[in-house]
Design a protein around this nucleic acid. Structure first.
Lengths: 215, 215
DNA sequence: GGCTGGCACGTACGGCGTACGTACGTCAAT
DNA sequence: ATTGACGTACGTACGCCGTACGTGCCAGCC
């Protein structure tokens, strides 16, 4: 039946599929094996343990980021594109992404985005120290944003009411939250992401002019 | 022996203690019960299930943020202080914090920081929509930063080499990463956090002048 | 043909969350 | 004082989990 032979790649792919379909908590070696029509222990011929398998998931997700970098574009535009490319992959694999954020990488899979970003920033005139700082800041913002976007739907719950459900907050204790409840519950993720990104780019563009570039 | 009676608060406190000592993965109902010198099922008289217990942990951690707000200070200074207060708690409970970031709140425990921040921002002259956007951006940056800071030491490993261990990166494939490896591996978290925070504050201060405030 | 090495598989162990039944203390109504 | 209801602590048991270990099969090489 299962013509294709078992392999690490097939196992990882199945794991990703399972995670996206049923959530990170639902993934288990037994479930994956069943999905592949295979005995549980057969997996261990290709993967040392579950943790390594999840590392593989992270690696696979990260390596699928599609950069369409335009070397001729202004560096601000290139930063924008890289940020959105990163965001796109997390929307393609939302639940796997959460997993990626929760564990640190032990492979070089995450290095390509870093390389690209550093090259872009140094091309903008920042020195090494500055570029690294800027990169860290961008990553922090992007990861934080995506954590909110994706975390808001841990079970893909249609109602994302979170805690500030209308009328459930005491206006005496939390006047601002209470008043702004409609704005807090509604969120155009795309717009919010872009807003912060632009602010960040503006902010560092000032620094680029003030001494980052030398020409 | 255990004079004090079992209670939700005691269970949550023990869970936090356990998480900080042995990591989030090491926490289990059985371990908590053993820690308390109590049968496993006794816990269920005070907590409906493990997930709710972890919600309690998140709530407890969040509610321990110490705000020392100064109403007379400039709003930029107040934002700074709130951000650092948030950061402080995550350093006090690093492993529990990771847990907080990984699950969304179902209680009002996280509302006080939000209320404070919104009040500060609106005091700066931003309207509701703007304040909410700014807040979201700050939270994204702060959470992203702290995720990096804390995630770097999941086992409190003394070596935090991560992936860019010196000489382990191919300079031909990743020239920037390779060249900047020393800067990438070393990280003064405090300084990096402050750097990005200042940049963000500067950025929104410009917007405040441009139309946020009306006086 | 026989040997060797890799792969699929079954069994088994210890640990997990928790449903369920039980025993015991306290307190209210009788 | 007796009884009954109730809350709490506890033990047992079930169905999951990750995975150590041993067994059998089959391909490729001598």
């Amino acid at each position: 039946m299962t013509s294709e032979p078992l392999s690490r790649a097939r196992i990882v792919a199945t794991a990703i599929d399972l995670i996206e379909r049923e959530g990170a908590e639902g993934v288990s070696m037994r479930r994956i094996a069943a999905e592949l029509g295979v005995g549980v222990m057969s997996l261990y011929n290709h993967v040392p343990n579950k943790s390594a398998l999840l590392d593989g998931v992270a690696e696979a997700v990260l390596s699928q980021i599609e950069f369409t970098d335009d070397p001729d574009a202004h560096w601000t535009e290139r930063v924008r594109m890289q940020a959105h490319a990163f965001r796109a992959i997390t929307h393609h694999y939302p639940r796997s992404t959460m997993l990626v954020f929760g564990r640190q990488l032990h492979s070089n899979a995450g290095l390509l985005p870093v390389e690209r970003a550093l090259a872009t920033l140094r091309g903008a005139g920042f020195d090494g120290q500055q570029a690294v700082r800027m990169l860290r800041m961008f990553i922090a913002y992007i990861v934080g944003s995506l954590l909110r976007e994706v975390g808001v739907t841990p079970t893909f719950a249609p109602v994302h009411g979170s805690m500030v459900k209308a009328g459930e907050v005491d206006p005496a204790l939390f006047p601002e939250v209470s008043e702004l409840a409609p704005l807090l519950t509604a969120c155009d993720h795309e717009a919010e992401f872009a807003f912060g990104l632009e602010l960040l780019i503006e902010a560092i563009a000032v620094h680029a002019k003030n001494g980052g570039t030398r020409g």
